[in-house]
Design a protein around this nucleic acid. Structure first.
Length: 426
RNA sequence: GUGGCUGUAGCUCAGUUGGCAGAGUCCUGGAUUGUGAUUCCAGUUGUCGUGGGUUCGAGCCCCACUAGCCACCCCA
């Protein structure tokens, strides 16, 4: 259908059928974060461009070609946030939340990246972010992984997700390894495939993930990150693995797992599924001990993850784990002189008497057949009927729509409330 | 940013060598004047993604654009 106005590419409307599923998912995310003692923070969608350049890294794809960046009226360069961690750290520093204290935080909201849209990849997408500041041991790394795992269990999708785990070493170790790897790759530059040549200088660690056969053979002799790890890094990673094993969380070691944002060190992890095609990472994160200092704070250990809400909802839908709930419990209908007024009063009366019920009043008139069809379509459990005789007597006729055999009852208002309560509880 | 496939009624989709724009579903009314399913009858579905071109004539052929899907890439 051709329309003169349409949404910006890659930015989707969520319609009633979608929001019903999203609300269920969001509820479980909030409750689980709260159950682990985490507190919500809300940051602006816009930040100074500078923040993302410093936090994410100047040469990453996200900063180089995916940010929505523009100048405001005063000429300052602003960007829509492409991820949440940078803004979260900024907020913590600005309000001294992490001065000599630890914080366990979460947030939820839209992020923006100018990528080519695809299934599970949109220009406006939504993340649950979880960030912990001030704790440097593997116990907290394990905790946030356990938090994510608790989510999969609550959603009933734990079997469909695999935990991939790796360590990048300290930033110093990683830097030395990176230089050594680049040196190695440059020495074999002419024999590498095209992708790997490009990555040698943009994202050298990702060359290790090359699917090219010839490159794979060359990489057999490449320096290995494990050989560059110091005893502390080794101990941190071993400690994490032990804690996960103790908690019964299965993981796969994946030394090609690198992640694209520069701020990560030590632990990195991803929860992946093969049920979503090419965009199979539902949740990913790791440790970023250098970021707080890099943004001007005192050295503060930090760890966190991001969870792609679109991908989560897609996965839940693919696995049939979310079912649209009916939006209406009770449908109030009427016919005859004065019905509109009686319906409005009755609906108001019932909403007070049954504050948790969802009560819709039929508007627009029409015969009862039409009104019942409407109620049926909405999957309402009960109908409240106001016809000529009810209007005259001040009674309500209650009909159980989910049980064809149940006889309808004409009752005084108080008794009708009781009857409705019984139908809703059944 | 690169490549492939796709775009026809609100939805799912047919549409022949280029020759009147179609089906199912949904919706509305009726059969049943105070009651949901099914059935039957009647009725409305429309910029054929947009703009050009070829042609006597284009939903169909050609070009450009646009959007979606899939993959690469990247990441959540």
């Amino acid at each position: 259908m051709a329309l003169s106005v349409q949404a910006v590419r890659g930015m989707n409307d969520l319609l009633p059928a979608d929001t019903a599923l999203w609300q269920q998912a969001e509820k479980i995310l909030r409750e689980t974060a709260a159950a682990f003692g985490y507190s919500e923070v809300r940051m602006p969608l816009l930040e100074k461009t500078n923040l993302f350049c410093r936090a994410i890294g100047e040469v990453t794809d996200v900063v180089e070609k995916e940010m929505y960046t523009f100048e405001d009226r005063s000429g300052e360069s602003l960007s829509l946030r492409p991820e949440g961690t940078a803004g979260c750290v900024r907020a913590c520093l600005e309000h001294n939340l992490i001065y000599n204290q630890e914080q366990r935080l979460w947030y939820m909201g839209p992020m923006f990246r100018h990528e080519r849209p695809q299934k599970g990849r949109y220009r406006q997408f939504h993340q649950l972010g979880v960030e912990v500041f001030g704790l440097n041991g593997p116990d907290i790394d394990a905790e946030i992984i356990m938090l994510s795992h608790a989510l999969w269990e609550k959603f009933g999708i734990a079997d469909s997700l695999t935990l991939q785990l790796n360590t990048l070493g300290s930033s110093a170790e990683r830097q030395i390894y990176r230089e050594s790897l680049v040196q190695f790759l440059e020495a074999h530059f002419d024999d590498l495939d095209e992708d790997s040549r490009r990555r040698t200088h943009t994202n050298p660690l990702r060359v290790l993930d090359s699917k090219d056969e010839k490159t794979g053979a060359i990489l057999q002799d490449a320096p290995k990150l494990a050989d560059f790890l110091g005893p502390e890094s080794r101990a941190h990673f071993d400690g994490l693995c032990q804690l996960l094993t103790d908690s019964g969380i299965k993981y796969e070691l994946n030394n090609r797992l690198v992640r694209g944002l520069d701020y990560y060190n030590l632990t990195v992890f991803e929860w992946v599924t093969d049920a979503l095609g090419a965009q199979g990472t539902v949740c990913g994160g790791g440790r970023y001990d250098g970021l707080v200092e890099q943004l001007g704070g005192a050295p503060t250990p930090a760890v966190g993850f991001g969870l792609g809400m679109e991908r989560l909802v897609l996965l839940l839908s693919a696995l049939n784990k979310l079912q649209a709930q009916r939006a209406v419990d009770i449908y109030v209908m009427g016919s005859g002189e004065g019905a509109a007024s009686a319906q409005a009063k009755t609906a108001a009366f019932l909403r007070k008497a049954l504050p948790h019920a969802r009560i819709m009043n039929h508007c627009g008139g029409g015969n009862f057949k039409k009104q019942f069809r409407r109620a049926d379509k909405l999957e309402a459990k009960a109908a409240v009927i106001l016809g000529e005789s009810e209007l005259k007597d001040g009674t309500l006729t209650i009909k159980d729509l989910s049980n064809q055999d149940a006889p309808q009852q004409t009752l005084a208002p108080e008794a009708a409330v009781q009857a409705l309560q019984q139908i809703l509880q059944a």
